[in-house]
Computed example of a mutant assay.
Amino acid sequence: MTDLSGRTALVTGGAQGLGEGMARALAAAGAKVAVADVQDDLGTKVAESIGGVFVHLDITDDSGWESGLAAAVDGLGGLDVLVNNAGVEITSLITELDPADVKKMLEINVLGTALGLKHGLRTMRPEGAAGKGGAIINVSSVAATIAFPGISVYSATKSAVDRLTRAAAMESGKLGYGVRVNCIYPGLVPTEMGAGLADDVAQLGLFESPDAAVGGVVELTPSGRLGTVEDMSDAVVFLASDQAKFINGAGVPVDGGMGM
């Protein structure tokens, strides 16, 4: 098993879903973990259950990132790994897009990830508060690599996460920050968000039922099943580890082949 003993990590959106699974997996691998979220009660419970710390963080708030990472570094004794996981998906046909929903996805998925990169790199570069380099893992989506109906703007934002990842990796390397930056493309996972997507596309008339929507995804997936939280968490732990020390600026599909 991958050993992250002595490492410190922060996971955004760590109070539930994929983020909670990633926080638990990092802790199980030996890392000290900060759970960052706007859901204080849930986030605190997760942090306490894994022996970590909780940090209140609105990822769209620039000053919040600065204070949140400072609190994480203080509570953990450093920062070696940042997982930019927090995100939102709002389903809609293109002809029915609500500008408020578009702005929300852009702010959380794109701006939130960009600010995470900004402050993560500042914290982990040689002159930063942590100063030892490390790894940043952004959570994109298989939606960035396929054309799936009902999630056009979400797909666009997750494509932006991919581009941010590659540019950040190049800047980090050119400037000697010592921080690897990668992203993963999760396939559909039956979390609250994943189940909600299946319901939404059925309600839009794109599939006969939520089960039919799930079946459509499975049919497009060579591995013949949906992803699990563990599948995604394992990929994050791997990218955070020295086993991935020469993987940089990459997008790693964790989608059972759906986006090939």
Rank of each mutant, 00 (worst) to 15 (best):
D3F: 08
D3P: 07
L4Y: 05
S5L: 07
G6H: 13
R7A: 09
A9Y: 03
G13D: 04
A15S: 08
G19S: 04
A25M: 06
A27M: 09
A29W: 10
A31M: 09
K32I: 04
A34E: 04
D37S: 15
Q39D: 09
D41R: 10
G43C: 04
S49I: 02
I50A: 10
G51N: 04
H56C: 01
D58M: 01
D62V: 14
G64L: 11
G64W: 11
S67Q: 09
V73S: 13
G78H: 08
N84Y: 03
S92I: 05
T95R: 15
P99T: 11
P99N: 04
M105C: 03
L106E: 14
E107M: 14
V110N: 06
T113P: 07
T113R: 00
L115S: 05
L115T: 07
G116P: 10
H119L: 01
M124C: 07
P126Y: 06
G128P: 10
G131A: 03
G133H: 09
G133L: 08
G134M: 10
G134Q: 02
I136G: 00
V142A: 15
T145G: 07
F148P: 01
G150M: 03
A160H: 08
T165E: 03
A169F: 02
G173K: 09
G176S: 15
V179N: 06
I184Y: 00
Y185T: 00
G187A: 12
G187K: 04
G194D: 10
D200E: 12
V201D: 08
L206R: 05
P222F: 13
F238R: 15
F238T: 02
D242L: 06
Q243W: 12
V252N: 02
P253K: 14
P253S: 02
V254L: 05
M258P: 00
